[in-house]
Design a protein around this nucleic acid. Structure first.
Length: 416
RNA sequence: CGGGGCGUGGUGUAACGGCUAACAUUCCUGAUUUGGGAUCAGGCGACUCCGGGUUCGAAUCCCGGCGCCCCGACCA
């Protein structure tokens, strides 16, 4: 894409009411726009990143047998009354509305109920299980307080996968498999090293749930990590009994701030019982499906990536999340030869399918470098009178600033 | 939901109760410049969040509302 036609532009200053680093940088770079408190919109660059993150998650979910689908955001009252979760006392985050005729509707804040209800029509035999439907879908939560830029919002995309298994053992196996998939996702998105599988409160049907917590100043959670073991405990279950249960010792634990980037829950048969989602086993006995739910917020993940990987100059995208693989800069001033060469190079890159943002604008070098640093594309290709004369091009790694001069052919050789 | 802070061109700031609401940036014209947001000249752009009130006079003071941010509480 040519930067001259990109409708967003960078800004030197962030709006004063944005305090969080992720919102500051993402707004300055033209990735997102704030509509209102806790509601952000994705602009072209931001959507590219979001879709890349979604793509990584999708690959890993498909790899463990996930089947993508998409439920509705609009929810009907009756479905949720089945479990008692229509009640505002129990679920204070509901956004509710009405049809013209008066019937009450809600905007889904999660999807256990509608999915379990739906699956009833497709599951009747042990041969139908296990199944792992999932979706990327907009959730609405009327949070009392939105905060931290795109990390805690009222409208957000969530990947939610639900597992339906025949037995507790089968459930447990998938649960661990999904935990493994989550590890891969966070690793691919550059935050694997600072993301800990964390024991947290488990809800009704298990002692613990597992959260994936990424160390960050922007965090809302406090966790205690055991670096040697690579696991952590959320403050909410940080008691002597729990530590003993988990075989952890206080002296090995370090207190850290973190953001929850993923969670996995065992749901037991709470929902399958409520909706009578049952199947016949090999002996003809009626059994309830054992369920789990597995969430990741791609938007939040994007915020966490910015928060944790950015430097003083701007965003540093990991390559799998980056909006483009290369940022091509024409630093030729008005030099026609430089422009012609860069134009041609841009076309060649497009032709071989490399995602490249071409800064073809008539601006001074400094401004282009500053923009490029802010936007954070992993590799920068600089073409100028100097490089033209030396018959090479300059490739700069955003993360390290490492600069290489290579022949044009080498660029294509090594690929993106 | 408790506590605190704040609403002024797109963005960031200024203006004692008193002149045509100022400066920077963005944007437009032109000149000049071209490896780290350069420089110069000219120009566009604001019912000062909304509604009341006090006053000869309100961006400024008072009341109410709305909105935004932060801390805490809450958070499958």
């Amino acid at each position: 894409m040519k930067q001259s036609v990109l409708f967003t532009k960078t800004r030197k200053e962030a709006p004063k009411d944005e305090v969080s680093l992720n919102a500051k940088l993402l707004i300055r770079g033209g990735f997102i726009h704030k509509r209102m408190a806790g509601v952000y919109e994705y602009l072209p660059l931001g959507l590219l990143v979001l879709n890349n993150i979604i793509g990584v998650i999708r690959e890993e979910m498909n790899a463990i047998g996930g089947q993508e689908m998409k439920l509705s955001a609009l929810q009907d009252k009756a479905t949720w009354e089945t479990t008692g979760r229509w009640d505002d006392e129990k679920i204070p985050v509901w956004f509710k509305t009405r049809l013209k005729e008066g019937a009450e509707l809600g905007l889904g804040f999660t999807h256990e109920e509608p999915l379990t209800e739906l699956m009833r029509g497709y599951v009747s035999s042990y041969k139908d299980l296990p199944v792992y439907p999932y979706q990327f879908q907009t959730k609405f939560r009327n949070e009392e307080r939105a905060k931290s830029g795109i990390i805690r919002t009222r409208e957000f995309i969530m990947k939610d996968l639900y597992s339906f298994s025949r037995s507790e053992a089968e459930h447990r196996a998938f649960y661990e498999q999904c935990a493994g998939a989550y590890r891969k996702i966070f690793k691919r998105l550059g935050i694997g090293e600072i993301t800990y599988r964390t024991f947290a409160s488990g809800g009704v049907f298990s002692t613990y749930s597992d959260e994936f917590q990424t160390l960050s100043q922007a965090g809302e959670d406090t966790i205690y990590i055991d670096e040697a073991k690579g696991i952590a405990v959320n403050k909410e279950v940080y008691t002597d009994d729990v530590l003993k249960d988990l075989g952890l010792e206080k002296k090995n634990l370090k207190e850290k701030r973190s953001v929850e980037v993923g969670n996995i829950f065992s749901l037991g048969t709470r929902f399958s019982d409520a909706f009578k989602l049952a199947f016949k086993d090999e002996n003809g006995a009626q059994k309830s499906a054992v369920m789990g739910s597995y969430g990741i917020g791609p938007g939040r993940l994007m915020g966490v990536i910015v928060e944790t990987l950015a430097d003083e100059k701007g965003i540093v995208w990991p390559s799998e999340a980056a909006p483009f693989a290369f940022h091509l800069l024409n630093i030729g001033g008005g030099d026609e030869k430089v422009r012609a060469y860069t134009d041609t190079l841009y076309k060649k890159l497009l032709k071989v399918g490399i995602a490249v943002l071409y800064d073809d604008r008539d601006l001074r070098a400094g401004e282009k470098f500053a923009d490029s640093d802010l936007i954070g594309i992993p590799k920068r290709i600089v073409v100028s009178g100097k490089t033209l004369e030396a018959k090479n091009i300059e490739v700069v790694e955003r993360k390290t600033g490492k600069t290489k001069h290579v022949a044009e052919a080498e660029l294509f050789h090594r690929g993106a």
